[in-house]
Design a protein around this nucleic acid. Structure first.
Lengths: 122, 122
DNA sequence: CGGTATCCCCAACGATACTG
DNA sequence: CAGTATCGTTGGGGATACCG
């Protein structure tokens, strides 16, 4: 059991955790997923206004990656001006509880960790 | 409820998830935490041999960061040659279930996601 | 053994300008 | 409105050498 895990961790390419985290663990992906979970459906610029600090380029590429993993679904309406809506897929939704689990831990421990960090070095 | 979340996500500095993920979401931290959880106690070179693809520099800095957040405890034995042991703190252990939750999702969805990725573009 | 110090490189990310 | 294209920066991370 433990031995198998050790091998798994050591395997760069085939470790599922690392493979998924390489995608979701970037600067914006997790945030977008949680946001879309709350909002259900959002247009490109809606997301952009909500996460105002993201650049247009990064939002675009983040959404593309999420779409490539079938975590987000993109729907284009052939109207002028263009209208594109994004929402989570079933797979995307299935990821959310795990992210929320992590989020709750972060919320509960954030203050203490900040304290720990500032004390570090004493 | 939703509105509050939106504000929270948009706040770069004070968002707990992002703050924690900035630390734990790097290339090695999560791996080291899961490994130490399995092994209970490990010496520096034991970790290094297990995760052989990590450089000495990165292992050192990863452990330092984890220690600064009080997720990992470092114990030095004043012997020659030096002996240093690492193990998770209580806070570190409290994080593990959430990482495992994410790991299980990754394990279950890894194959399908790989498939999705290779199909992408069709 | 358990690290630093140093050098170097690339990919992630941002800013700005442009377009269908 | 919803993006691309292009350029520039920076810091995460690796390789190697050295040290207490």
């Amino acid at each position: 059991m433990t031995e198998e895990n050790l091998k798994l961790y050591a395997d760069e390419v085939n470790c599922p955790v690392r493979n998924v985290l390489d995608r979701i663990g970037d600067k914006w992906s997790m945030l977008v997923v949680l946001l879309l979970h709350d909002a259900k459906v959002m247009r490109f610029n809606e997301i952009h206004k909500t996460i105002s600090s993201i650049s247009q380029k990064m939002l675009s590429s983040t959404l593309k990656t999420l779409e490539a993993d079938d975590l987000v679904q993109r729907e284009v309406y052939p109207v002028i001006p263009p209208k594109v809506e994004y929402q989570l897929t079933a797979r995307g939704e299935s990821l959310v509880p795990h992210l929320q689990s992590l989020m709750h831990w972060a919320n509960e421990n954030f203050d203490e960790i900040k304290q720990t960090r500032s004390n570090y070095g004493s």
